[in-house]
Structure formats: structure tokens, C-alpha cells
Design a protein around this nucleic acid. Structure first.
Lengths: 218, 218
DNA sequence: AATAATTTTTAGATTAGTCTAAAAATTATT
DNA sequence: AATAATTTTTAGACTAATCTAAAAATTATT
């Protein structure tokens, strides 16, 4: 059996390893898990013995296929629950993460397959992140960061990089939601802030905002 | 903070104490929790220190008001989730308990209040057990065991005493569900089995079955 | 290439929850 | 009321997950 803690470590390693980083470092995991490096070393040894990660001393870890399967399944559950919370229980997108962190650990195949059906097989969670299917397949959409869009591009918001409450509330306040259309009007060379046109109004957003909003150029 | 294990002990003590038993014994808890008496003693001391139970050595325990509040809240969550599983996710009534055992520990006031609303404030779970309201109030219905009904009584099934899978499947097989109407026709003195009329058909049920089915005499 | 800085691991302790085996208290039986 | 049977508690040990502090290895800097 896999423990709650083991699942959380595997999830952390998955998220840290997902952007091309091949060996996830002990310190990175410690930071993500808000724990000490020594605790990570202990756990990583255990995960290695159980076959969830490949680990060589001082070299960091990578998930094995078995580990990846666990991770993807947790991600699937997390995102399905997020959809449930928003669509059925009227949570806003900045409130769902914390609760989903707990719901994702409930172990029942039937629960998840029925939830999936009940939600009519959603493909993306409320933040625009893709929901892996039951076989673990994740279909990627060709999104780019708003900061990478060219002047004149017509875009649709399709996701967020950061899903902290502060950022999501900023978007709410400025009427930016998934599906919102916007046009890139101007980029200020000094600070890389950009002016966008959104619902016939102009809005200046900082580079930091543009760096955390995914769009699809139409 | 209260741990998962503490919550489960409190729940066990609540269920054991609910039928008039004032002091729940160490052994009874051990049996309910499928653990050893020595473990129970340790935990009971901890619960006592934290103010969830009153405990005197060798005398068993009773829940304090604080403990009862915790217990009732867990029961509320458990039963709401059971309704959700049956009504929304098409679980059958013999499948819900195990999953609800996990869901009941998720801590989020908003989750439960929204779930309650989403389910349109159900008053009873799929086994006919009452769902405490947000203040912990439980409204009792005047149900009796079918074994206590008199010959000639017209009854409606309103709940089950035992909610084991075997018993519930027996009921399904014999077309007995909550809301089903039946009439008590005959009681066999030898073994206390009773003959009931149900949907124009006669059915003989053992005393053990009749002892686990709650009905309301109409 | 040697030293400094950083990262990672080890060693030893701690806490929550559990266990076995033995001791103490309570309850039941003669 | 004494003894037997049962229940409950204590004592000491174990596992999972964590921590601090020190040692070892790696990486960066002169």
C-alpha cells in the first residue's frame, strides 16, 4: 500500500520534473513539500525501494513508469474534483485547490469513473489544465504565454501558469476568465508591460501577469 | 488539530454510546476499531487530555459536548456523501459506506454546506438514517423494527439497522427498498419468522431479517 | 587545482499510533 | 468472602515520518 505522504512526494516530484528537468533535486523537493532535505532523503530512499523513483545518491530522482502512473492518477483526480467544485458546488476558481488537495487522495475507481461521467468527461480543469483520461493520456493544447504573443495577435485565454488565489482574484477583478478574448495592442519596452484590448476596453498588464496567463492565438 | 485516527475513535465511541450505553468500554472500542485494548487505552487518554471524552480508569468513556459535536459532524458528512454517491453517481446503497468513510474526513465547511444545498438538503441517507443539520440537530422519526410490528400492520420501510452489503443485497433481491409498502400477515411462533405481503406477493422472512429492517406503521 | 560554498546524506532523537506480554483492577462464580 | 475469569492498564518495543546537527559529496569561485 501507498501512504498519503508517499503520494504527496510522488506528486511533488512529478510537478517538478514535468518541465524538462530530468533529475529532481532533494532541495527542490524539500522546498515544494515544505520540509527538510534530510526528510526528503529518507523518503526518496523509501520511494526508490518501492519502485516509484530512480535514485542515485547525490544525483536526485526521476519517477519510474510506476511512479508516473501514480502521479498522473492523482492529477486526474485533483482536476476532476476541481471541475466538480466549480461546476456543481459553485466554488470560484481560486477556492478549489485546497479542497481538491484532500479529495485527490480518496481511493475508489468507481468514484472517479462515475464522477468523470457525471461531469460529462471534462477535458480541462477550471484553470485550463488538461485532465488526464483513465489511461493517463494527457492531451496538450498549443497554448503560449501572453508575454510571448506578438503585437496585433487576437487571443483567447486558455489557462493560467500560477494558480494562486491572488493571481486568480486579479483576473476576476479585471474580467479575465478562461475563454475571454483579447488583443495585444502594445508592449512597453522599458518594463515589458503590455496593453491589451479586452471587451472593447484597454487594460495595461505587467509582464508578471502576462507571464502567468496562457492564451491561444486565433 | 484533530487527527484522522482521533476522529475515527470519536466516531466509534459515538456509535457505541448512542443506544443508552453511558460508559463505552475499552474492549467495545477495540472491537469496533479492530485494534487492541492497549491501543485503545492509550488513545482514550489522549482524547481525554484533549477534552473529547470523560475517562476514568477502568470505567470506560463518554463523549463530552465537544466530542459529541465532532462525532455528529462526521456523521453528517458521512451521510451527505452517501446521498451524493447514490443520487448523483449511481452507486447502490450497499456500495457507499466504504467510500463515505474516507470522504467524511475532508475538512471544509464550504464543501459540506454547498454539497448539502446541491443535494437539496436531504434529511435521510440511503439507508434511512437521519442527517444531522449544520447545528447538529438530528430529527428522529418514529420507526420500529419490523420484528416488533403486529399482525395486520400496514408498514412502509424507512430504514435498516444493519447496513452490511449482504443484508442490503438480500433486500434488493427481494425488491425491498426504502419506501416499499408491506403488510405483516403471519408470525411463526417456532422461529419468529414472519410472512409479509409485498407488492401483492407473499414473502417469508426470518426473524433476523425482521430485526434489521425499520418500518413505520401507517 | 585548491579552497569556499552549497547540497545532500547520515546519525541520532522525537512523535503518533500501534503491538505483545505482564501486571493490576474489576466482575463473576463458587 | 475467596477464588477464578475477564477486562483494563502499564511497560517496553516497533514503524512511519519528521527533525537537528554534523559529516560527506558536489559544485562554484578564486
Amino acid at each position: 500500500m501507498i501512504t498519503l505522504t508517499e503520494e504527496n512526494y510522488i506528486k511533488a516530484i512529478y510537478h517538478l520534473g514535468k518541465y524538462g528537468v530530468n533529475n529532481v533535486s532533494t532541495n527542490a523537493i524539500a522546498k515544494e513539500m515544505e520540509t527538510k532535505a534530510s526528510s526528503v532523503t529518507d523518503m526518496v530512499k523509501k520511494l526508490s525501494e518501492k519502485g516509484y523513483v530512480d535514485y542515485k545518491k547525490y544525483q536526485g530522482v526521476t519517477l519510474t513508469e510506476k511512479g508516473k502512473e501514480i502521479a498522473v492518477n492523482i492529477v486526474r483526480k485533483h482536476r476532476l474534483w476541481e471541475v466538480f467544485l466549480v461546476e456543481k458546488l459553485n466554488f470560484s476558481w481560486d477556492e478549489v485547490h485546497e479542497v481538491a488537495e484532500h479529495l485527490e487522495h480518496i481511493k475508489s475507481k468507481k468514484l472517479i469513473s462515475q464522477l468523470d461521467a457525471f461531469l460529462e468527461f471534462p477535458t480541462h480543469d477550471p484553470h485550463g489544465d488538461p485532465i488526464p483520461d483513465k489511461t493517463g493520456k494527457i492531451k496538450k493544447i498549443d497554448k503560449i504565454l501572453l508575454s510571448e504573443a506578438k503585437i496585433g495577435d487576437d487571443c483567447i485565454c486558455v489557462g493560467v501558469q500560477d494558480s494562486s488565489s491572488d493571481f486568480l482574484k486579479y483576473l476576476d477583478k479585471n474580467n479575465i476568465a478562461l475563454g475571454t478574448e483579447l488583443k495585444v495592442c502594445h508592449r512597453e519596452p522599458f518594463d515589458n508591460s503590455i496593453t491589451i484590448e479586452i471587451k472593447a476596453k484597454e487594460l495595461i498588464i505587467s509582464n508578471m501577469i502576462a507571464n502567468n496567463l496562457f492564451v491561444k492565438v486565433s
